[in-house]
Each structure stands twice: as C-alpha cells, then as structure tokens.
C-alpha cells in the first residue's frame, strides 16, 4: 500500500512537472509585454526596459525557463507582476476562498445528486424519476456563465434576496482571518450574523456550480444505482427477508459507490475549470479570479501556478480515490500490495 502510494505520488509529481513545462512555454508563445502594463501611459522606452530587467523578462527564454524550474523545485512559484508579490503569498491569500466555494458546492452537490439519484432509482421510469430527469437536464444545457448571470439577475437585481458578489456583506466587518475559510472564521468569532452573511454570499456561486454538476452527477448515480439493483445479491437480500430500505442503503448503495466515486472524481475536474468562470462572474476573490486578472495583463506566473495548483488538486483527488476504492470495495486490491 505504502509502495503503491509512493509510486502514485511520484507519478503525480511527474504530471505536475509536465504541466509546469507546458504552461510555461505556452505562456511565452503569446507575445505580450507585461512590463508595458506596469510602466503605464506615457512611460518612456527606458522605463519599460528597466522593468523588463527587474522581472528578468529581457533574458533568453531558456534562461528564464531554467530559473523558473529551479525556483519551482524550491517551491517558489515565481513573482506576480500585477500584484508585485510572490505568487505563493498571493495563493495563500486567495486559495481559501476558492476551497471554501469548492467544498461547499461539492458537499451540496454530493448530497443533492445522491438524494435525487436514490429517489429516482427507487422507481425507475416512474413519475418522480421522470421529473428528476427533466429537472436535472435543464442544468446541463445552460453554460456556466449564462446561468451565473441569470441567477444574479434574478436573485440580486430582481428579487433583492441575495448579494451580487464577493464573499462577505460589504458594509459589515468580516471576522478576523484565522483559517481564511469565512464559514469557520465566522464560527470562531461566534458571530451568527457573520455566518449568515457568508452563506448568503456563497449561495449564488455555489448554486451555479451545483446546478451545472447536478445533471450529469444525478444521471450517473442513478444509472449506477439501477444497475446495482438488478444484481443477484439483491435477490439474496430479499430472500433473507430484508426490507427495501436496508437493501438500498446497506447493500446497493455501498456497491454503487465505486462508479459514483469515479464519476464524482471527473465532476471534480469539471468543477475546477468552472470555478474560474464562476469566480469572475461573482467577483469571488479566489485563485480563479486571481489568475484571470493576471492573465488579462499577461502576467503569467499566476496562470502557471493556477495550472499547477489545480492539477495538484486533481492528482490529490485521484490519490484519495485510490485510497478510498479498496475501502469501499474489498475486491479492489491496491496495486502493489
């Protein structure tokens, strides 16, 4: 097991390296000059040149690459030209916001898709099943940005129920930063109103992500459940005199978990890519917005860092799944043990 995990870990590192190399060169293929952005209107050519030198942009590409990779090996993600800080410092500040949004969305998604799938799978082809299918299908066809803007228009502009963006009510004072997760920080500060404010700001971005994930997730979970329901062990369970509830929750669900987990891993991947859009739409101060704004001024270190961080997230999730599979299904032997 340990051996296997080490091997997987090594793979993960290799993948990350590849991503770093690819994004580095991709970012340099686009000819743009972040130094001109820093220098601003009416700056002289000499000023621009000075800034280029300051950030090492005047050096040959291979030299830039080597120094970037050397930095990376020491955990240095480079310098952001836009924020004039180290990317690691920025990430430490922006990452909790993204993680909070992702975790909240994902938790809601898991519970919702699971409940819907279980409800639908109870009587496949029935009215409830059909209604759920129709509802979730609506979510698939809608592009994330459109959905986000529509929700914003509806709940902020028309109904005045929910705020327009960001993480916390504007005029209120946010709880002191302890973890960077506002839900936790609000609780640590013992402030129910701060918690409510946080949740209100989370609602729309999270809803946007959940609705988009839900369609595919529910369908996959439902299919997995229905397939498991036709297995022979279900007949055995009935033959013992077990009720439908025990059969579903103890027998079927546990078996359906593996395919559902596989689907969930993929969904997590989609979510990482959507989170950028959602953060931009809702001014959510996470790494997505950070990278997007950096990208706009051709400040590439944050963009490469985002690629690395999200790949690392994906690698980590996969690693977690590799650990989880054998626990969920004893037939799955972890490779190498």
């Amino acid at each position: 097991m340990v051996n296997f995990l080490l091997k997987r870990f090594a793979w993960g590192i290799l993948v990350l390296l590849l991503v770093a190399v690819i994004t580095f060169f991709l970012s340099r293929v686009v000819p743009a000059d972040p130094a001109a952005f820093l220098a601003g209107q009416n700056a002289s050519e000499a000023t621009v040149q000075k800034i280029r030198a300051e950030y090492g942009l005047d050096r040959p590409l291979t030299e830039q690459f080597v120094s970037y990779m050397v930095g990376l090996s020491k955990g240095d993600l480079g310098q952001s030209i836009r924020t004039r800080r180290s990317v690691s410092t920025d990430l430490a500040q922006y990452l909790p916001a993204t993680l909070e949004l992702l975790l909240v969305s994902f938790t809601i998604y898991l519970i919702a898709s699971f409940s819907l799938a279980v409800t639908a799978a109870r009587h496949p082809g029935g009215f409830v099943d059909g209604a759920i299918r129709l509802l979730t299908m609506v979510g698939t066809g809608i592009p994330v940005f459109w959905l986000g803007m529509a929700l914003q228009f509806m709940f902020f502009y028309k109904l005045h129920w929910l705020p327009i963006g960001a993480r916390f009510p504007i005029r209120e004072t946010a709880p002191p930063v302890v973890t960077g997760f506002l839900i936790i920080d609000s609780m640590l500060a013992g402030s129910p109103s701060a918690l409510l404010g946080t949740l209100k700001h989370l609602a729309l971005p999270a809803l946007t992500i959940v609705i988009n994930l839900l369609a595919v997730g529910t369908r996959l979970s439902r299919a997995a459940l229905i397939q498991e329901q036709s297995r022979l062990y279900v007949r055995t369970a009935r033959g013992k005199g077990l009720g439908p509830r025990v059969i579903l929750y103890k027998h079927v669900l546990r078996n359906a978990l593996s395919p559902i987990l596989t689907a969930t891993t993929m969904q997590f991947g989609y979510m990482i890519s959507w989170v950028i859009l959602v953060e931009v739409i809702f001014d959510w101060p996470g790494i997505g917005l950070y990278a997007y704004q950096s990208f706009q001024v051709f400040d590439y270190s944050p963009v490469i860092a985002l690629a690395i961080v999200s790949t690392a997230g994906f690698v980590l999730i996969n690693l977690l799944m590799d650990i989880l599979y054998p626990i969920i299904d004893p037939r799955v032997q972890s490779v190498g043990s």
Binding site: L232, R238, G241, I328, R331
Partner: peptide, 27 residues
Amino acid sequence: DAELRRMRGREIGLIYQDPLGSLNPVW
C-alpha cells in the same frame, strides 16, 4: 411484499445457483 418479507428467511429459506454473485461482495 411486506407480508411475504416476514416469511422469507424465517419460514422459507433460499439458496441460489451462483453463490459468488448472490453474496454481496462488499460485506
């Protein structure tokens, strides 16, 4: 089914052709 359920296992036992498939693999 709820009525038959009380009888299954308790008064009528069943065994099947494919014991591997008929046993739940994860318990």
